[in-house]
Amino acid sequence: MAKERGEKVVATNRRARHDYTIESTYEAGIVLSGTEVKSLRQGRASLVDGYAFVDAGEAWLDAVHIPEYTEGTWNNHAPRRKRKLLLHKQEIVKIGQKTKEGGFTIVPLKIYFSDGRAKVEIAVAKGKREYDKRQTLRERTATREAQAAMSARKHLGE
């Protein structure tokens, strides 16, 4: 079988960008069992309630739902278990200091395969207040309307 190339996105957490202000992002490997990898390859995962944390110098991903592999046997994995994240020590220390600072949390943004290896993109983020969310929506709407007006004007001139 040929080696996989490129990036194949399995699941994204679109809600995270709405609820949080992203400070910085990191790519981390995930320690998975065989049936979890097979389930991910089928494109089945949910990051909705997922979060990450640093404990005793190790990074962990929790509450991410990877459903049981349908063709699996009695040794199938638990759908919502803690999974270890593979990061460099300096990154773990930096992330841990940020979260201890207060107000910051670690949220998963997407799970994907990069050259055949399962990866997760995590972000150090700060929660948005309700008025921040409304402001972001207002800015996005204004930008979209401006683009539409410029596009319409461009088409009229032709």
Rank of each mutant, 00 (worst) to 15 (best):
F104K: 13
E139C: 03
G102C: 10
V31R: 13
A123T: 02
W60G: 01
E130H: 11
G96A: 09
E4A: 08
K38D: 12
A118N: 04
R5E: 14
Q147S: 12
N75D: 15
A148S: 08
H65T: 08
I30S: 02
K94Q: 14
Y20E: 13
Q97A: 15
K38P: 00
E4K: 01
A149D: 12
T143F: 10
Y131H: 14
K94I: 04
Y112F: 09
K100E: 14
G6V: 05
H88F: 11
R80P: 04
K8I: 07
K8Q: 10
S46D: 11
E4L: 06
G34T: 02
F113P: 10
D132R: 01
Y26P: 11
K98L: 15
K133R: 12
A125W: 07
R5A: 08
E121F: 01
G127S: 12
Y131P: 00
T70A: 15
D115S: 11
R140C: 01
L32K: 06
D132E: 15
L137K: 08
T25R: 12
K154R: 14
A56D: 14
L86G: 05
T70L: 12
Y51A: 00
F53V: 01
R17A: 10
E130P: 06
V64M: 11
K119W: 00
V54F: 06
T141L: 13
Q97T: 13
V10P: 02
K133W: 05
T25Q: 12
G34I: 02
E101L: 10
A59N: 06
I106W: 13
F104Y: 15
E36R: 03
K84A: 10
Y51W: 11
R117P: 01
A146H: 08
A16P: 05
G157K: 12
H65W: 02
R81Q: 13
R5V: 05
E7A: 01
T141E: 15
M1L: 11
K119R: 15
R14P: 12
L87T: 03
R129K: 12
K89P: 06
I95S: 01
A63W: 11
P67W: 00
S151Q: 14
R117V: 10
K110V: 00
L86E: 09
T21Y: 07
K126S: 07
E23Y: 06
Q42P: 03
K128H: 04
K98W: 09
K8M: 06
K100A: 11
G102S: 10
G72V: 00
M150G: 09
A125M: 09
K82V: 05
G50V: 05
S46T: 03
Y112S: 07
G157C: 06
T136I: 12
E121I: 00
D55P: 03
